[in-house]
Design a protein around this nucleic acid. Sequence first.
DNA 1: CGTAAAGTTCAAGAAGTACTGAACTTTACG
DNA 2: CGTAAAGTTCAGTACTTCTTGAACTTTACG
Lengths: 155, 155
Amino acid sequence: MDPDVGRRYAQEVGLVLAQMGTTPAFGTLLGWLLVCDPPRQTAVQIREAVGLSKASVSTGMRALEQSGMVRRVPAEGRGHAYEIHPDAFTRAIDPTAKMRAFIDVMQRGLDLMGDEDAPQARRLRHTRDVYAYMIERIPALLDEFRAREAREEEG
Amino acid sequence: MDPDVGRRYAQEVGLVLAQMGTTPAFGTLLGWLLVCDPPRQTAVQIREAVGLSKASVSTGMRALEQSGMVRRVPAEGRGHAYEIHPDAFTRAIDPTAKMRAFIDVMQRGLDLMGDEDAPQARRLRHTRDVYAYMIERIPALLDEFRAREAREEEG
DNA sequence: CGTAAAGTTCAAGAAGTACTGAACTTTACG
DNA sequence: CGTAAAGTTCAGTACTTCTTGAACTTTACG
């Protein structure tokens, strides 16, 4: 991929991720690691590729590391390189996070009301229960996908 | 529920929703409509309850209406009242929205690469496919929940 | 049909946040 | 072991975005 195209794509990913609450820089770095060639790159390479400051690369890469999406690997010469985890998104970006937050705030409302079975609690109960059900079922879906993926790689 | 407790709870909901990209005022209004008694309230009542300006209530309620979470109902006397839809959250807050955004940006990366089967495209492909699979299966989960809910109301 | 309440719109101020330059610490080559 | 590259930290700046007061339009009661 053309380096210029890659840089712009990384920024696109940055925008998408930013709309989900990360900083643009965080998403840009992730976007670059998603498409870069070779897949392992040093901070200096990344910096030159995406055009962020040394400070932003340092802070952003640490956040990516802590979130478990990216890992450090030894590099020849000085410093170290970074590599995105193959299924970084499924590992770190929990699609049920939003639902959990809803469940929590609904439950808190029910606690404040005191009587969970009161008619006025219905609005809160319904929302809590829908999301609780979804979250309960989603892990099985992920397992199914992994099984299907494994089957395809054999066959 | 104590009016003061209700107001503070509405603000809590506002904070939770704000972390998902809405304005705090939007979430606060929604939070109030979740727990208020009576469930139908005029803009003036809402304004007094949550302590937002007339302007914020007006703008916020319109957004809630357009998102389909809240509907206007005729009020006695002047003006009109608002009422939250029983399953406002499941209707309007699509838990797959985030996944769709990821699928789109992964696909765009694959398009830029040209060759979808290239080894360097693997990182993009994997993420796209996981989320596509999840989205495909989630509607069935919602149906299951509704069926279960209907069964419980009979029994 | 006049008037006051209800509702809308928008410019301006306030508040929060992300990026970076610069100073500092750590690392490792020669 | 000196030095230069690599990496970290943080205060300041630039930017975006939410809220609101105020002026305006619409509604409906008397």
